[in-house]
Simulated assay, not measured.
Amino acid sequence: MSWSLKFIDEARSFERWGVLKQEIITLEEFEKRDGLKSGIYSIYANGALVDINIDIVESLPLIVFFNGAQKRTPEVTLPVFSGLNVTPKGMTSRLSINDPSLYMGDDMLMSWYAGSRFVPLQKEIIPRIISKVVQSIDASRLIFSGGSAGGFASLYYSKHFKDAICITSNPQTSISTKRVLEQAHI
């Protein structure tokens, strides 16, 4: 398994998303933004690159989507934004978050949005991004959704937001060293 960060631009393409892309230097800059707009944001936080796709409809429920395992091919590049066709456009706000650990290498298929001791995704980065979006769009409800490793992330993050709902399918809830090594064929 490749544990060093690869050159991210080689693994990244926004062609298939066809929406505005806004580079953000830091998480703090993202949090200071007034009036978020629909589109893709690239947020750099603690050495991680977190790509998000927001489709905003003010004052309606916000569904936060997490992706499952992602095998890359020439046709399937990062970032991956799950859930864009789950609800009809205009009926809810949607926030799709690409798992930043997938940029570590082509053989990294999933990492449960867990981060590491150096990249505090669970304790800091992702909760701050979600909180900013909820506050900015005045979401009437917060719903988390995902399947497989994204299901694990949905379960995990939903418990940290008061009155949040979680809709998941086949959540992979067992993260063990043995399983990770088997996945990586080590």
Rank of each mutant, 00 (worst) to 15 (best):
S2K: 12
S2N: 15
W3C: 08
W3D: 15
S4T: 15
I8M: 07
E10D: 13
R12P: 02
R16G: 03
W17P: 01
G18F: 01
G18I: 00
K21S: 02
Q22I: 10
I25Q: 07
E28V: 02
E29V: 04
K32W: 01
D34I: 04
G35K: 11
G35T: 11
L36K: 02
L36D: 03
G39Y: 05
G39D: 06
Y41D: 01
Y41Q: 05
S42H: 03
S42E: 14
I43W: 00
N46P: 00
A48T: 06
A48R: 01
L49C: 02
V50Q: 02
V50I: 15
I52G: 02
I54M: 06
D55A: 04
I56W: 05
V57Q: 13
V57R: 12
E58Q: 13
E58L: 07
S59E: 15
L60P: 01
P61I: 11
L62R: 03
I63Q: 05
V64E: 11
F66P: 13
G68K: 08
G68I: 08
A69W: 09
A69Q: 09
Q70A: 15
K71E: 15
P74Y: 02
P74M: 01
T77C: 04
T77L: 13
L78T: 04
F81Q: 11
F81G: 10
F81I: 12
S82T: 11
N85K: 13
N85F: 09
G90P: 06
T92L: 00
L95C: 06
N98I: 02
P100N: 04
S101R: 05
S101W: 05
S101T: 10
L102H: 01
M104V: 08
M104I: 14
G105H: 11
G105K: 10
D106M: 09
L109D: 08
L109G: 05
W112E: 14
G115N: 03
S116D: 14
P120S: 03
L121V: 07
Q122A: 10
Q122F: 02
Q122D: 05
K123P: 03
R128A: 08
I129R: 03
I130W: 02
S131M: 08
V134H: 07
V134A: 12
S136P: 03
A139L: 09
S140E: 15
I143W: 07
I143D: 12
F144P: 12
F144C: 13
S145L: 03
S145K: 08
A149P: 10
A149S: 15
G150W: 06
L155D: 14
H160S: 14
K162H: 13
K162C: 11
A164M: 10
I165P: 04
I165L: 14
C166E: 14
T168P: 03
S169Y: 08
S169L: 10
N170P: 00
P171K: 11
P171L: 13
T173R: 13
T173E: 13
S174F: 14
S176Y: 06
K178Y: 11
R179V: 03
R179M: 08
L181V: 04
L181P: 00
E182P: 00
Q183M: 12
Q183L: 13
A184P: 00
H185E: 14
I186Y: 10
